[in-house]
Every structure is written in C-alpha cells, then in structure tokens.
C-alpha cells in the first residue's frame, strides 16, 4: 500500500513493479485470507487431527480420558457389530447410488426426449424435494408407510387391492426398502437436472444423423446418448457415492438404525458409541474407519475412470 502511494507521487516504479507490490502485498493476503483460514483450520482441520489422537484413548469429556494404546484398534477387529455396520454402509451406498443415478438418468431422458414445452415446470416440481429438510421428509415417510395405529396411504392401497398391510419398519429388508425409496424420492430431481444438462451438451447433428439413418429411439439412446453422456454419469456417481457413504440424517430420522441395528451404518454406529455410550476413543476409531473407506472408494473410482477414459 505504501508502494502505491510512492508510485503515484514519484513515478519511479514501473507498472509491473507496482502490480507486484500491491497484488503481492503480504499484509493484504493476511487480512483477506486470514480469518477464513483460521476458522476453517480451527473448526475442521485441527479437530480432524485431534480425532486421530483420540483413537489412542478411552473415555469421554465428562468421564475423563485415559491412555489406551492400540486397544481401540484391537476392539475394532473383535467387534461383531462393526462388520454389520460396515456392510450396511457399503450396501446402502451402492444401492442408493445406483438407484439415484439410474432414476435420475431415466428422468433426464424423459425430459430430453418427451417433454418439450412445459418441461421446465415439471423439472422444477420434481426438484423440490431435494431442498426439503431430511427430517421433514423422513417423518413424512414414516407416517406414509405407517402400519398402526394409523394406517398410512401405502398400507391403505395394499389393503384396497385385497392384500394385508405390512409393518414396514419391523423387518430389516422392508425398513431398508423404505429408506431406499425415500432417498431416491428426495434426490431423483437433483440427478435428473444434473444429467439433463449433460444430455443437452450432446451435439444435435449426431442425433439428427442417426435419426435420418432410421435409428429407433432406443437404439439412439443406446449407441449415442449413453456413450456420450458417460462423463457426466461418472461424475454423478462419484458425487452420489461420496454422499451416501456419509449418510446419517435420513437413516437416523427414519428408522433410527432399527429394527435392532439392521439399518445402522458406520456414521450412526459412531454416533451411538460416542454419545450414547460415552466412548470417544472407540467412536473416533469408527470415524477413522469411515474416513479410510471414503478415501479408498474415491481413489478406486478415480483410477477406474481414468482407465476408462484412456480406453475410450
């Protein structure tokens, strides 16, 4: 800043020197970047490293901590609940990711090939559940699928067709089904819009040419649309799996992890261990397991897609 004034006064600095002294001024960098970097470091980075430290302790902030060495990691290997939670996390992430992206893609195809005028209204409407609070949606689905004392619309429909109502949240399979339906319901509009934007990027000339050659709609989709929208499909998958591996809100609010612990992913298991049982050390160890899982999946996807792109 003094440099700018000096330049204006004496005119001895060249333009380049002036730019360098002003745009490279360390104090300005500190003033503009400092607060954000400080809050981010103290609120995210330091706690993350600190959490790694907790894996060597036992106890909580209320009961106090004591050194545990590698006992938490030993416990991790012996804990029968861990493989269950890990398996549910993976199952949930894979099923929901495939479901979200697949349904989103079908909707995007519907938007492109069928809806023309009026499409914007439908896209906007289908997008609405995306921004609804997860808790509100979960409570809504709980009541929508309720068995007793109120008979929800789903069971009412089943009974209207002569079937018997289902207690959806009493068996692991059904509870998972409702969670999956809910998560797809509330996110399909998002993936539809994301993939729709990708489909619009396909050059019209290619579609025209194929249509002239007499290709049917299905053939057109299979040989032109799908291959050309592969990049945006892959990035949707990456985004989706990154979110579903960390899913907590929807499951906590809809099933609470039950029946028993049948729908408990690592996120929820970590939360219960830390706050219901007051074991921060083991809770951090589970959180670390989740972080490692996320990293492995990300690395795997990046390597797999890079190979894909190299081949294609």
């Amino acid at each position: 800043m003094p440099a700018a004034r000096a330049a204006a006064g004496t005119g001895t600095l060249t333009k380049g020197q002036l730019m360098h002294s002003v745009l490279g001024d360390r104090r300005s960098v500190a003033i503009l970047l400092g607060p954000a970097l400080l809050v981010y470091s103290l609120g995210r980075l330091v706690p993350m490293l600190w959490s790694l430290g907790y894996t060597f302790f036992i106890g909580s902030v209320i009961s106090g901590f004591s050194w545990a060495g590698t006992a938490n990691f030993g416990k991790l290997l012996d804990d029968p609940a861990l493989p269950t939670a890990l398996w549910f996390t993976v199952k949930y992430a894979v099923v929901i990711t495939v479901g979200q992206v697949l349904v989103g893609y079908l909707l995007a195809l519907l938007y492109v090939f069928f809806l023309r005028r009026g499409g914007a209204v439908i896209r906007t409407l289908v997008f609405f559940p995306v921004i609804l609070p997860t808790v509100a949606v979960a409570l809504l689905f709980q009541k929508f699928f309720e068995y007793a004392p109120q008979t929800g619309p789903v069971n009412a429909l089943i009974e209207a067709f002569g079937g018997t109502g289902v207690d959806w949240f009493s068996t692991p399979g059904n509870a998972f089904l409702v969670v999956a339906m809910m998560d797809i319901w509330r996110s399909m509009g998002f993936y539809a819009v994301l993939l729709y934007a990708g489909l619009l990027d396909i050059p019209d000339e290619m579609m025209e040419a194929a249509a002239m050659d007499g290709a049917s709609t299905w053939r057109l989709i299979r040989s032109i649309v799908v291959p050309l929208s592969l990049p945006v499909l892959v990035s949707s998958l990456v985004f989706s799996i990154n979110g579903t591996l960390k899913a907590f809100d929807s499951i906590y609010a809809l099933t609470g992890g039950g029946p028993g612990s049948a729908t408990t992913p690592l996120t929820l298991y970590m939360y219960q261990t830390s706050f219901a049982y007051g074991d921060y050390g083991y809770g951090s160890t589970i959180a670390l397991t989740l972080t490692v899982l996320c990293l492995l999946v990300t690395v795997f996807i990046f390597r797999a897609t890079r190979r894909d792109l190299a081949q294609g």
């Binding site: 995210r44 993350m48 951090s284 959180a287």
Partner: peptide, 16 residues
C-alpha cells in the same frame, strides 16, 4: 481437502 472428511471426524474434539 475438507470434501474427503466425514462430518463425524470433527464432532468429538469440537464437543470437548
């Protein structure tokens, strides 16, 4: 780097 970190990693130290 934050995108990689699950929210669960930061809860316990912050709570303390």
């Amino acid at each position: 780097a934050d995108i990689m970190i699950p929210g669960q990693m930061i809860l316990l130290p912050l709570f303390t």
